[in-house]
Structure formats: structure tokens, C-alpha cells
Amino acid sequence: MHEIGVREVVQFLGFTFNWETLKMTWLAMAIVILIAYFATRRLSLVPTGTQLFIEAIIEFLHEQIGNTMGKRGMFYAPLIVTLFLFILVSNLIGLIPTLASPTNDLNTTLGLALMVVCLVHFLGLYYKGGHYIAHFFQPFKVFFFINLVDEIAKPITLSFRLFGNILAGEILIIILLQLAQWWIIPSVAWLAFSIFVGVVQALIFTMLTMAYLGSSVKDDHE
């Protein structure tokens, strides 16, 4: 990003794409796949190295899924695990100079959030049918509008939270470097904090996704 907020745009088959975002997304995907490759290269009953790291993440997410989504949720575990790893890697590669986070583009975050919300409604209808539609009118019919706002707010909050945090972090890295080139401590401190923010934002996005999916996937009698 030479000028903050200005994006390099390419045209392809009449569609407009943010070229840098796509490049960085593919880079993040490649890194995630590479991690997965290293984790599964020598699978053993006694895990070491990368396998241990990935297993710890899967184990943690499985527990969360079990709590929020119940038994049915286990089917969506690959989605959740991928979501976490992808957002985590996306957030962190933005901290490397000359690279940028795919998540600093609202297209990415809103895309993921819309996908999650669509999945929530689709799975809600699939698992609960009319009962799912009825719950929008609870406890009174008038509450439909409030529930509607709630549902619309979900993807917006989900996407803008991640987008805002990551973009603000990257902007601040650039600004701190330009403001105080002779004094790098604030810049380094902010970089360290950005790592923390990146992990936390990935976790928040994943946890909220689980909670939203849980409301439509989890068996009521469970």
C-alpha cells in the first residue's frame, strides 16, 4: 500500500477484482496448505512439531464446537478449523513488510461473514424447518423487525470488526514508521500488539461463527 486506501484494480471478464487482495489471499492459502502439508507429512500416533500444533488447534476447536454446536456441529468442524487458520494466517502476513492482509479488504471479511450467515439460515431451515422461521416472530410478531435488524447486524458486525482491526493495525504500522523513523520502539511495540490482535480477531471471528451456527445446527433436545 503506497497510498492508504487506494487499491490496485484489475478487470477480468467484465468483473472488477482487487488484485493485491487476491494475491495475498492466495499467499495465505498457500501458507495454510503448507502448514497442513507439514503437519500431515509424517502422521504418527505420537505427534511432534507441526502435527502437535495443528492437533492442538483442532482439539481446542472441537471442544468449542461440541459446546456450542452439539454433535451435528462436528460435520462443520473442517469449515471452522479452516476459517480459524485462514484468518489467523491472513492477519499475520500483513505484519510482514511489503505484504498485506487479505483481511484488510472488506471484500474478504464481508464475503466470509455473508457466507457464514447464509450457512446459518440455510442450515437452520434444513434442520428445523418451519420452527426456524417461527422463531423470528418470538415472543411477539412485532419482534420480527428487531430480529431482522439482529440478523442484518450479524454479518456487518462480524465483517467490520475484523476488517477494521486489521486495516487500522496496518495503517498504524505505516504511520508510526513515517512519524518516528528515528525511534522504532512504538513501531515495534505496535507490531507485537498487532500479532496479539491478529490472533484474537481470528479467534473472535471463529467463536462468533460457531455461536451463530450453533443456534441453527444444535439439536434443541441435546
Binding site: V9, F15, T16, F17, N18, T21, L22, T25, W26, M29, V32, I33, T82, L83, F86, P102, D105, N107, T108, L110, G111, L112, L114, M115
Partner: peptide, 14 residues
Amino acid sequence: NSTLIAQILNFLIL
């Protein structure tokens, strides 16, 4: 823009 759709597809592929 269309990046949004591309990102969803990217993610699903991943």
C-alpha cells in the same frame, strides 16, 4: 466488488 465472490470461492476451495 467481485473480489467478495472470489474470496468466498477461495475460502471454500481452501
